[in-house]
Design a protein around this nucleic acid. Structure first.
Length: 430
RNA sequence: GGAGAGGUGGCCGAGUGGUUGAAGGCGCAGCACUGGAAAUGCUGUUUAGCUGUAAGGUUAACGAGGGUUCGAAUCCCUCCCUCUCCGCCA
């Protein structure tokens, strides 16, 4: 969340940055409530101070063996009661204000970085670079079957029976399909571990506080599956458990940067995307993903983002899958992100690049929400860490890219070289 | 799920109504001692809000939230978590 102090002291700046996202963000209710709250707080602490004085005075007299029935003590008690009555009126008012301010703050998205390109929506995202043109198969494209067709033909993807077991937007991976998925998970975890990320297997049922910490709640409740009886949610991405590993902690500055990666299944309700990507592996309610998360000092977070982007693209390069990098414009940035790159992989059947990873720098936005701070030895006070997250990569989408880019004229699919040591076969055939 | 025990500062640990933000110890930092170090001694050592140019002032926090009281770490209520034993179980 944003810093109330920054909103108070630099409201013009904050307003301008929020405007870059488009949409309507009104700071005046927050500013007004904040003013009221601080006024109340001043009065309240003065009363509290008086109350403490009274308590101490009585305590001293009693200790010296004073009689509680003397006029003096009676009078003090009487005043104490009056102060208490006043406090009883102010306290709930102030609490209510604090709750309201907090609710409003939690609704505000992060401020875009000044380097994020200006734009209204995804059409104004900026392509940074492309890789792997030599692996594009110009001219053959119309012969390449979409991944769901080749997958069903080869008997490795089963959507029909998944509907029977669960619903639409689920899949069964069968035989070599399941093995390939597993190989991809292992391959990516191995690569990211080599790159310095410490692997974690976190819970995938997570609590409300964790989802609030990373910004999925309160605004996007309809996007996650909720187990109402236990008030737990199915994680939509390992970003949530990984970032929340350190919630409410003060980390020694010497331990930064902290790198973690995790494989988890991810669950998304995909509310509002009816009719979009209804076929194939692109948009499922449950999918696998290897995620990277970094907690870093504010001084280095921008370089750390570039490095994370490389960790993600390294996977695609090893797999020889053509991709491009897009920088999201201010209007397309996710709620918690200040700066974000999407990596898109080439899907021949669609003749398009499709998102396969998203790498974001959230600045101190999640650090503040999740209360993750760091402390430098010898320095007073604490600071919020900067958090970054990126897919490294989405497994299902990688699978679809392989099924298409590695499809051969005879209807079989070759296994990319780097995966062959993870599998007992080098080609998927009927 | 049943029975019991417990949650205090970076850590250990005292503290059952009165100058207790909290004894003592460990750790850490500074100083002294030393050729240098160890040992020893002294001093200091939480975080957050508001206020102030600053020094400072003030409030809050002993798992969380309520209550009793002039005054709560200490008494009462609710919830959460941890541990032990039993049951169940991958």
């Amino acid at each position: 969340m944003l810093d109330i102090k920054q909103i108070r002291e630099n409201s013009e700046f904050v307003r301008d940055r929020l405007d870059r996202r488009g949409g309507d963000y009104d700071l005046s209710p927050i500013l007004e409530l904040d003013k009221q709250q601080r006024e109340l707080q001043t009065t309240r602490s003065q009363l509290q101070a008086r109350s403490n004085e009274i308590g101490k005075a009585i305590g001293q007299k009693m200790r010296r063996g004073g009689n509680p029935k003397t006029e003096e003590i009676k009078n003090l008690k009487e005043e104490g009661n009056q102060v208490k009555a006043q406090l009883a009126e102010l306290e709930p008012q102030e609490k209510e204000l604090i709750v309201k301010i907090n609710e409003l703050l939690l609704q505000l998205p992060n401020l875009p970085a000044d380097t994020s390109p200006l734009g209204q929506n995804e059409t104004e995202n900026v392509e940074i670079r492309r890789w792997g043109d030599e692996y594009l198969r110009g001219g053959e494209e119309e012969k390449i079957l979409p991944h769901w067709e080749i997958g069903e033909k080869l008997g490795i993807l089963d959507f029909k029976r998944a509907v029977k077991i669960a619903q639409s937007r689920f899949v069964n991976l069968i035989g070599k399909g399941a093995a390939l998925e597993r190989a991809l998970i292992n391959f990516m975890l191995d690569k990211q571990t080599e790159a310095g990320y410490v692997e974690v297997m976190p819970p995938v049922l997570i609590n409300t506080q964790s989802l609030t910490g990373t910004g999925q709640l309160p605004k996007f409740a309809e996007e996650s599956f909720h187990c109402v009886e236990d008030d737990l949610w199915l994680t939509p991405t390992a970003e949530v458990p990984l970032t929340n590993l350190y919630r409410d902690e003060v980390i020694d500055a010497a331990e930064l940067p902290i790198y973690h990666c995790a494989y988890t299944p991810c669950f998304r309700r995909e509310a509002g995307s009816y009719g979009k990507d209804t076929r194939g592996l692109i948009r499922l309610h449950q999918f696998n993903k290897v995620e990277m998360v970094k907690l870093v000092s504010p001084d280095t977070s921008m370089e750390e983002l570039e490095a994370m982007l490389k960790n993600a693209t390294a996977i695609l390069e090893a797999l020889k899958l053509p991709y491009r990098i897009i920088e999201l414009c201010t209007g397309d940035l996710g709620f918690s992100a200040a700066k974000c790159y999407d990596i898109e992989v080439w899907l021949p059947s669609a003749g398009k690049y499709r998102e396969i990873s998203s790498c974001s720098n959230c600045w101190d936005f999640q650090g503040r929400r999740a209360n993750i701070r760091f402390k430098e030895k010898g320095k007073k006070g604490t600071n919020y860490v900067h958090t970054l997250n990126g897919s490294g990569l989405a497994i299902g989408r990688t699978m679809s890219a392989i099924l298409e880019n590695y499809q051969q004229a005879d209807g079989t699919v070759k296994i990319p070289e780097v995966l062959q040591s993870y599998l007992q076969f080098t080609v998927i055939e009927k």
